[in-house]
Design a binder for these strands. Structure first.
Length: 438
RNA sequence: GACCCGUUCGUCUAUCGGUUAGGACUCCAGGUUUUCAUCCUGGCAAGAAGGGUUCGACUCCCUUACGGGUCGCCA
């Protein structure tokens, strides 16, 4: 029996990192077992669903690289006979009606006003969760487990019912979802029993918390997947990081590509305790991924950020990008790291400038400027040699001149290798900036 | 409040009865880089508490504390 998993978000907001990780684990499990991954849109709450939210889910999934085999816009052979896109719950009402009739025929439903409630079988319910193990909830305690409404007075069906029907209809073999659904599972099991069907296997994964341990929700840092591209994260890095929240490879390795994750993933390795979101580590993971991609790819990914700051992409761009590739953690840091190489009007770090000017060796800068001005050839090596020559002629060590020169050329205390700066800027600009530094 | 799940460095985690409790992020100190960053080395830092079981417990059991989740005609 081939594995079938699904991600079933409801389009009521943006795609949340918690949801993204749920999607990722389902996707990984399906891919690992050559199974099928399904995207189902649970849009039964018409009042809260929006087109933007629906699009945010697709955009987020696409950005993360989590493709679905069945779902909106991609076919699948379980379409409703009466609808052309049955992966939207809002379009599957005839199916739910049919299942509702089954429960009615089985005498498991009773009216409560205009609504219908499902009569629970009053017995202990034990589930065998793939992550949490054996969990028992006593349904003999009616006060703790009141019969649930499955059909509202307005005729619409509730989440528990449509969710279960769809998982049955779509033949899910494994349901991997957030731990917030653990207490719902016995309800779902009861429904499935009443329908005379076989339940899928369940795996409830721990929730993702804020750094302070509170529940992560809207507006919390890192909550919206849609914010990550804007902040300069690589999708592979985000996938890598969220996979590490509640799951471990059981080795000392932490940096993985999506395909490496498929290879290593297993439900047994998922933890039971909630994990806190560490933005600093997320950035570090991003840096590691930047280091692994090619310079060409990095240049392409950084380009939008550079252009957004109105910095010109010229023939020096490849060299500029190469010079900073391993010095940034986020793509969004690129503009501020390279602006002085592209424009003469880049912002200066006043503190660094003041510190450099207070450095006794900065007195040698005019001499260095004239020495360089007299050079006939120009390269990173020749420029560095010039520094050594001027420094030694004045009884200083070359290394001591580096800091003032760096600040004179870049206006910063930190930046690319000085050789790269000389080569990219060219003799003329270097001399000009050195001359004006006083 | 009731019912569930959980609890190892500040954070993410390894450990599946016997380890000097390991790795990573962060931070600090050295080294490499004639500079910056990368990188390398080292350091700080943990079994919530109390009872059992056992020759031996972070690991198994119980209690308490704490954290999270769920108790809707939301999903």
């Amino acid at each position: 029996m081939s594995v079938r998993t699904r991600f079933a978000p409801s389009p009521t907001g943006y795609l949340h990192v918690g949801g993204a990780r749920t999607a990722l684990f389902n996707w990984l499990y399906a891919r690992k077992h050559n199974g099928t991954f399904i995207l189902r849109v649970e849009d039964t709450d018409a009042a809260r669903n929006t087109e933007e939210a629906r699009q945010a889910i697709f955009d987020g999934m696409n950005w993360l690289g989590l493709d679905w085999d069945e779902g909106p816009d991609s076919g699948g052979d379980l379409r409703s006979p009466s609808s052309s896109s049955s992966y939207y719950q809002s379009q599957r009402k005839p199916i739910y009606d049919a299942y509702f009739e089954k429960l009615l025929a089985a005498d498991r439903l009773y009216k409560d006003g205009d609504a219908y409630r499902f009569r629970f079988d009053r017995k202990p319910m034990t589930m065998h969760d793939l992550v949490c193990g054996e969990v028992t909830i006593d349904y003999r305690d009616e006060s703790n487990t009141p019969d649930m409404v499955v059909k509202r007075s307005d005729g619409s069906y509730v989440f528990h019912f449509v969710n279960v029907v769809d998982d049955l209809e779509m033949k899910m073999t494994h349901v991997i979802r957030g731990e917030d659904h653990l207490m719902n599972t016995p309800k779902h099991l009861q429904l499935i029993e009443a329908l005379g069907a076989q339940p899928p296997q369940y795996a409830h994964i721990p929730l993702i918390l804020n750094p302070d341990g509170t529940k992560m929700s809207k507006r919390d840092v890192g909550a919206a997947v849609g914010d990550y591209p804007r902040q300069g994260f690589l999708s592979g890095a985000v996938v890598n990081f969220i996979a590490l929240l509640g799951w471990s490879s059981k080795t000392d390795d932490e940096i993985f590509t999506l395909t490496e994750l498929i290879d290593r993933f297993s439900l047994e390795a998922i933890n039971r305790a909630p994990a806190r979101f560490d933005f600093e580590k997320c950035k570090w993971v991003n840096q590691q991924h930047i280091a692994k991609i090619s310079t060409e790819t990095f240049a392409d990914l950084a380009k939008p950020f550079v252009e957004a700051e109105n910095l010109a992409i010229t023939e020096t761009y490849p060299a500029v990008i190469t010079a900073v590739k391993e010095k940034v953690r986020l793509l969004s840091e690129v503009p501020a790291a390279i602006d002085f190489l592209i424009t003469d009007t880049a912002a200066q770090d006043e503190e660094a400038v003041a510190k450099a000017k207070g450095n006794p060796n900065s007195a040698l800068i005019p001499a260095l400027a004239e020495h360089m001005a007299a050079l006939t050839d120009w390269s990173a090596e020749i420029a560095k040699e010039a520094i050594a020559t001027v420094a030694q002629a004045n009884g200083a060590k070359p290394g001591q001149l580096m800091f003032p020169v760096r600040v004179a050329l870049s206006g910063r205390a930190h930046g690319p290798d000085l050789g790269d700066v000389f080569a990219i800027l060219g003799k003329e600009k270097c001399v000009a900036r050195l001359r004006s530094f006083h």
